[in-house]
Nucleic acid binder design. Structure first.
Length: 485
DNA sequence: CCTGGAGTTGTCCTA
DNA sequence: TTAGGACAACTCCAG
């Protein structure tokens, strides 16, 4: 008796086996299953992954391949144009079905639609699923029928409308015909010459197991302190640190929703922390709504009034910001944490983004691009949406006069300077009083701390009050319609 | 169509 | 030291 023709699961941003709708659908057909990942670097309309994301993807694929192997299957890895690679796999395996979970960037959506349109007439059963979001970005509408542009009403509407689906079990068996593919290492995702990833290896465990461990650890205690703990960058468990796992689909938001709700219903988790945490998950969701309806979110001002903004072109200042040498300790600590670990605490992301776009008056796109390249969680929706939010050009954005003060933010959220001392060790000897403003320290204090301003640690790139005034003036000019020209 | 309340995360000055 | 109000005006969204 010959076996049924196989079903292909095309993995993309859903690198997990549990609660994966495409995997579950493929297994449920009873067909042999072929698991495929295609590295399509030049896909039209898609944004090439940044260096840190590639590092993560490399590790995540290894974890996925191992998990599939333990189910008796194999992850087949190919490189090249997705449609052609998928065609090859169909031909080589005789597959008659293809399943995947949806993506939401315009280029990816179009590519997937064209593949679906091409395969259908050939008798291939193509099905796509939602494995990445709580609700599809087109499904939740305001009373007037549009998409939500303000977070709070969106959050309320989602809470009222969302029904978390039943969890889909992890498959016990995943086997099918074996075909040739590349080794994951051959994709060249891991950095070489130099290999800068040392700090990342120790900070992270990419893959579904690592994601599950993070979630369990966070819901096992820290979530109850989340409303305050989330603002303290020195704490290692103040936030969930699930963002890169979510980015690559090692865990889905529905799994998080279920885990939080069941913890709450069992009385293990308090409501305040739980709902605050879920609201952050829904911010990610909101960003996908914005991206879906504004495909060029990463390149175009959401609020077009900002097209009249005159940004400064200052490559030296941009470089100083990127390297963590602005002279503001909390800014520099954040930028160095990012560089070394591929991640930055959320509170600090706001501070450094405000500093770049307001104190330095540099276009938010420059910051967004840097984050895209250096963050392991660089997300096509959250990253541009958040940058625009801080810059003031985004949906439901911070008002323009809200210029974060890098000194008082440091004093408020890193009062004992532990965060700064960890990432700016040259300042570690300073007393708490000066840790967020070294230039205020007298000579004796500096000498005792072993800090030589301008040598060990830079003078501030711009004085806070002056930077703030300059930003406010630029915004005022923008509102009048831009400079004379 | 109109109305009114509300809007993630702040800063700075004044009393 | 601390608490309160100004900062701007606009758009979103529900009723």
């Amino acid at each position: 008796m010959s076996r049924a023709a196989p079903a292909i699961v095309w993995f993309r941003e859903d690198l997990r086996l549990s609660d994966n709708p495409a995997v579950h659908a493929a297994v449920s057909t009873g067909r042999p299953v072929v698991c495929v990942f295609i590295h399509d670097e030049d896909a039209a309309g898609a944004r090439p992954l940044g260096g840190a994301s590639k590092w993560w993807l490399d590790k995540s694929l290894r974890a996925l391949a191992e998990d599939i192997g333990s189910c008796g299957g194999q992850l087949t890895v190919r490189r090249g144009p997705a449609a052609a690679c998928l065609d090859d796999v169909i031909t080589e395996t005789g597959a008659e079905a293809v399943f995947w979970n949806r993506r939401y960037e315009a280029g990816a959506c179009e590519l997937d639609a064209s593949i679906k349109a091409a395969l259908g007439p050939r008798g291939i059963d193509v099905q796509s699923f939602n494995g990445r979001l709580l609700m599809e970005p087109w499904s939740l509408k305001t009373g007037a029928g549009g998409y939500y542009r303000v977070f709070t009403p969106f959050w309320k509407a989602l809470k009222a409308a969302y029904r978390v689906p039943e969890a889909l079990p992890r498959p016990r068996r995943l086997d099918g015909p074996r075909i040739d593919g590349l080794g994951i290492a051959e994709l060249g995702l891991h950095p070489e010459m130099p290999d800068w990833s040392g700090g990342m290896e120790t900070a992270w465990m990419p893959g579904e197991a690592g994601a599950a461990a993070r979630l369990a650890a966070f819901l096992g205690g820290p979530v109850d302190q989340y409303p305050e703990g989330r603002d303290r960058p020195a704490l290692t468990d103040g936030t969930s640190a699930l963002s890169p796992h979510l980015r690559f689909g090692e865990v889905g938001p529905a799994q998080i929703w279920r885990a939080v709700m069941s913890g709450m219903e069992a009385g293990r988790i308090g409501e305040d922390g739980a709902m605050k945490f879920l609201s952050e998950i829904v911010w990610r969701e909101f960003s996908y709504v914005l991206l879906f309806h504004n495909p060029d979110l990463a390149t175009r001002n959401y609020n077009q009034g900002f097209d009249h903004m005159t940004w400064r072109q200052d490559d030296a200042a941009l470089a100083a910001w990127q390297r963590g040498r602005t002279g503001y300790p909390v800014v520099d600590a954040g930028m160095r944490q990012l560089w070394q670990t591929g991640w930055m605490h959320n509170r600090v992301r706001m501070i450094v983004a405000s500093f770049l776009t307001k104190h330095l008056l540099i276009d938010w796109r420059a910051g967004e691009a840097w984050f895209w390249d250096t963050l392991v969680d660089a997300d096509p929706a959250s990253n541009p949406a958040s940058w625009q939010w801080v810059a003031g050009s985004g949906a439901d954005a911070a008002p323009y006069f809200r210029v974060f003060n890098p000194i008082t933010q440091g004093q408020k959220f890193d009062a004992d300077g532990a965060y700064v001392r960890r990432w700016c060790p040259e300042l570690a000897g300073l007393p708490d009083k000066f840790i967020h403003a070294p230039w205020m320290a007298d000579d004796a204090t500096l000498r005792a701390a072993g800090v030589v301003p301008g040598t060990d640690y830079p003078e501030p790139l711009v004085e806070h009050a002056r930077g703030r005034e300059r930003a406010l003036a630029a915004y005022a000019q923008m509102k009048e319609g831009g400079p004379e020209c």
